[in-house]
Every structure is written in structure tokens, then in C-alpha cells.
Design a protein around this nucleic acid. Structure first.
Lengths: 243, 243
DNA sequence: TATAAAGTATCCCGTTACGTGAGAGTCAAT
DNA sequence: ATTGACTCTCACGTAACGGGATACTTTATA
């Protein structure tokens, strides 16, 4: 496929493809003797990845880093992107709610706080970049730890609650209904906090709980052996929920 | 409210507020003797408008034009934005569907055409800018006509179908159930085609059908008096559906 | 009340992700 | 053989801020 064909298919400009070639983000697998770019099936798949990341607000540089990374796994990325898109949808729903309220408000039908007027916008320190580094960066452990520390006090309480609850369930099997419900809560919680784990990554996180003593020590404060218990439960949870 | 307070409330940077001031997009209603920017309630409402438009991909220049326009009506804008956000949500849903399919595909579970791989992305010639000019620009009539001409043949057929159907209903009252159903179809169709009309604007469009002979002539080709009939029906439809 | 810390101002250069020609070569069809 | 649709490579333009430098205000604290 030549440039225009690709551009039309995916709804981007030819210049964009040129640009992606220039910066080495998407180099066509072949070029004719005349210097025409020819894109392969493979190139198209990469382009799809790129566009997903772009939709999620990643800068091109970061996208290049990610897909060039030796540890890059397509399936894993897709699952994470899936989570992030759902999150984005949530934001959009909030905005739609906000605009509906505003319409009522502007007709004088209801009251609205300033807070409410901007719900759904708070995109602030976008969590995606963070997540990317955690996933594919180098100092994953440190940053993950840091994040746990930096939680707001409200969430800190919920955080404690989950761990406390899990601690009381240690005597059950990791696949018991109660346990899995709590693990699900934990997964949701992490997502809410801006940590978009794919199920595979979530499983990996559990393994870090026993593999890295900094985690183990923190977690076992809630109860001896909790880290190991969670690791098992999280693995089960992940395998069960993989798409 | 001073800069930081506003910035924190809505989740943007102070620099952004400076920038909006520089380009005259959002000028604080007051400044202290020391030159500090002080934002009013009114300013906040404008900011909300700006952010909605921004979320929808409007360039700041266009946003300025729009909200500076003498014919700008806040409520109308909100309704249009509401439509556009719903449309955007539709796109997002498509993307989520696409990514779910891709996950299956990458596991070898299903087949996928190239078309399918990029569904939801096709943002192409974004219709918003067009709509903005139609709504607040000058040569509204010409461009609207142009658009009707340029429809793809598939849609042309549907287009014809709607008008044809409506023509056969001329003898009924404009508020009859059958008629309103067709008018709704027409409204949906226009939305699908990238013409995001607020209900108020939709009503206005109907009035153009009788007010501008270029429209009247085209429409009455389907049946004498159809333009007038549609005008009435559209007004009823709009009033009934206003939020 | 002095002094530090936090917030704000302007100025100005940098960056990202392309847009937009200009000028020239290539390819398929009439 | 020529036209028209595609393609290429420069190369400059732009939109929407980011971020540092430097200086002034305001608030908190000792």
C-alpha cells in the first residue's frame, strides 16, 4: 500500500505518514526504486498501535520509546489501552453529565457549584505517562512505591481497608469467592488511581509483592503471609479475567 | 479568584490562563493595582464554554470567533456541544469495540479486515469546523446547499428516501406521529452527516426552507408545499425535544 | 516587624505535530 | 506523447502552550 491508500484507510494525512517516517516512528517496510513508500500489513498493525496511544494523549516520542522497547508486548499493550479507553469514556460521560446540568442551570432550573461546572475536565497530571514508565521504564519498583505513599488520605483509608480485609481472609483459599471479590476491588482501586494494569501486568504486580522484599515487608504489615496470598489470588484473578 | 485558584479548580495550568489572556480569549474581568488577574463568575462560565469547545477539537482562534460573535447564544451552543459530545462518545465506543476485536484477532481467534482495524479513528475532515461556520459564519446558505450536493450516493439515496416519505405525508398534520418520526429521522441523518444542529438551530434550518427560495425550490421538487410542511414539523419537533 | 515562602507578573525562547506550498520526478491512462 | 493523479524532498509556518529568568506582591511565620 502506498501513502495515500494508507492515509485514506485510517483517516490521517499523507504528511503525517511522512512525519512518522522522518522521526523513525513508522518506517515503511519497503520503498520502490523511485523512492515511494510501501507499507506492509505489519506496518498497519504498528500504525494502529500508534493511533491508539495517540488517542490516549501520548506524545510521539514516548510512543516510539514504548513500541521500540525490547520488553514491548502487543497483547499487553492492547489490554492496557482497553482499560485506558474505558477510563476516558468515563470522563466523557462525566462531561456529558456536566453539560446537561449546565443547560438546566443556564435556564435557572437548578443550582451548580463551581466544582460541578468543571467535572470531567480534570485531566491534570495525566496518569498515562506515569503508567507507561512503570510498565516499560526502568525504575518501576521505586515509582510504584512512591505512588503508594503519595495517596491522598481519603484513598489511603480505602487502601488500608482493602488490605485489612484481605488480611482477614488469609485462611481461605486464594480462589474463594470472598477473596476474589476483594482482589477485584483492589484491581478497580488501582485503575481508579490512574494505574492502568493489563491483567498480565496485574499478575506481574502480584509477583513483585513476593519477589521484592520492599513490597513484601510493607504488605505483610497487615498480616504475616499476606503478600504471598495476594500474589496467588491476583494471578488467579488475572487468568480468569483475561479477555 | 486569582490565577492559581482557577487553574486548580478546572485542572489547567496558570500559563494557559496567561495565554488565553494574551490572545484575548479570556480576559479577566478585573486586575488588581499590582497587575494580578482576578476572575469573575462570568469569566468562569466563559472558561467552561472554551473548554467544551476545546475538548471537541476547535482551535482557539475559532473559539474566540464563536464566543465573540454577536449572534452567539450560550444555550444554543450548549445544546450543540451536547450533540457533539454524544457523537464523540459513539466514536470512542467504536474504538473500544475495535480494540476488543483486535485483542481477539491478535490471539488468532478471529479474522479482521483492514477497514475494521481502524474503525473509530476516521476523524477525517472534522465536521465541527464546518458546522461552526454554518452556525455562526456568514455564507451559511451556500455552504449548506453545497453540502447537500456533495453527499455520497449511498447517503443520497437515504436522503431522497426521507424527503420522498415526507412528501407523501404532506396531507397529515405536522405533529402527527408519522410525520414526527420522519422528522426525527431527518434530524438523526443530519447529525450522522456531521451537521450538529442544536434544536434551536434545527428549527432555524426549517425556517430557512421557506425563507430562502433556493431551499424552497429544491425541496418542493419532492412535492408542492413540502418545504412549508417540513418547516412546521421541524419547529414542533425542536420544541418538543429541547432539553 | 522583619524575613522567608509562596504567588504573580512580564519577557522570551523552545517544542510538538504536523500544515502548506514550491519544485521536481513517476506512473497509468488516454 | 501528454495529461492528471501521485509521489518525493526541502523548508518555512503555526498552534498552544512549557519552562526558565528576573522582578515585584502578598501571606505566613518567627
Amino acid at each position: 500500500m502506498k501513502v495515500k491508500e494508507v492515509a485514506n484507510l485510517v483517516g490521517i494525512s499523507v504528511r503525517t505518514l511522512h512525519h512518522y517516517d522522518e522521526i523513525g516512528l513508522l518506517i515503511p517496510e519497503e520503498t520502490t526504486v523511485a523512492g515511494y513508500r510501501v507499507y506492509s500489513e505489519n506496518n498497519l498493525e504498528t500504525l494502529q498501535q500508534i493511533l491508539f496511544f495517540k488517542e490516549l494523549g501520548f506524545p510521539l516520542k514516548k510512543i516510539k520509546e514504548i513500541i521500540d522497547s525490547p520488553s514491548f508486548d502487543r497483547l499487553e499493550a492492547l489490554e492496557m489501552q482497553h482499560n485506558m479507553l474505558l477510563e476516558k469514556k468515563g470522563r466523557l460521560d462525566k462531561m456529558i453529565g456536566t453539560i446537561e446540568k449546565t443547560i438546566q442551570h443556564s435556564k435557572g432550573e437548578i443550582q451548580m457549584s463551581n466544582q460541578e461546572k468543571f467535572e470531567g475536565f480534570d485531566f491534570s497530571h495525566n496518569p498515562y505517562e506515569q503508567e507507561a514508565r512503570e510498565k516499560w521504564g526502568d525504575q518501576a519498583v521505586d515509582e510504584a512505591n512512591e505512588k503508594a505513599k503519595n495517596m491522598a488520605s481519603f484513598d489511603q483509608k480505602k487502601f488500608n481497608g482493602i488490605f485489612h480485609n484481605l488480611a482477614t481472609l488469609r485462611h481461605l483459599t486464594p480462589d474463594s469467592k470472598e477473596t476474589q471479590k476483594r482482589i477485584n476491588e483492589w484491581y478497580q482501586f488501582l485503575n481508579k488511581m490512574g494505574n492502568y494494569y493489563s491483567f498480565e501486568a496485574f499478575k506481574g504486580l502480584g509477583q513483585m509483592y513476593v519477589g521484592d522484599e520492599r513490597f513484601t515487608k510493607n504488605i505483610d504489615q497487615f498480616g504475616e503471609g499476606l503478600a504471598k496470598f495476594m500474589c496467588d489470588a491476583m494471578a488467579l484473578y488475572a487468568d480468569k479475567n483475561k479477555i
